[in-house]
Amino acid sequence: MIRVEDLQKRFGSLHVLKGVDLEVQKGEVLVVIGPSGSGKSTLLRCINLLIEPDDGRVLLEGVQVNRPGIKREWVREQVGMVFQSFNLFTHLTALQNVTLGPTRVRGEDPGKAAERGRALLARVGLADKADAYPAQLSGGQQQRVAIARALAMNPKAMLFDEPTSALDPEYIREVLDVMASLAQDGMTMIVVTHEMGFASNVARRILFMDAGKIIEEGAPEEIFHRPKEERTRAFVSKILR
């Protein structure tokens, strides 16, 4: 469904992505782990073209999307993103956050969009917070609204950039639960995270990334318990203790 071939990205003299290959099938959950600065966020942002790759190909359902002639907005409609810092629109209520995309980008009827929006908020467990402003919500609630907001666009796949890293510990569970239920419903997901529990239970495959390259790839138990590469072993041992 999503394939990335030999992705290269430089920021000035900093070579952030040094030829990354990645593939995720429909309905698959792929988790990317790695030390900070390894380029994981950049990789995600190249997939939905928030960042323009210097070289390489990004393919969505077989179609190369990182070329002139393709509208970026169209790509981003197909691939939703959830951010580490939630990025909820502070001047809008939760429901308005969720319906903004469908009404303004898709031109959906506001009434229908609101209905769907409430349903989505109920799905993430926040039906009663539809009229709350982000500042009135806890971190976990904000992130769940963010997930509902991304889902409102009916994306084919979802990208998660360290969704729980900015959360207080007591809120991490609720967000991971929502993500797990999404996975169960068959959503294609690429998740950058440090939550190893989630990775072990929900991911089909794990990618270990370091210094701009994919070092190793495999099923969760292989990566965590029988890593082949030295760097993988070093990183995993630090994480798992």
Binding site: N48, L50, R72, E73, W74, R76, E77, G80, M81, F83, S85, N87, L88, F89, T90, H91, L100, G101, R104, V105, A146, R149, A150, M153
Partner: peptide, 27 residues
């Protein structure tokens, strides 16, 4: 206005103009 706001708006498929109008400008 935090840059994340613009990112989030764009990730929903909004054009730069739409992001400006509905997200950045109001704030």
């Amino acid at each position: 206005v935090p840059t994340g706001q613009l990112e989030a708006a764009q990730s929903l498929g909004m054009t730069r103009g739409q992001s400006m109008q509905f997200v950045v400008l109001p704030q």
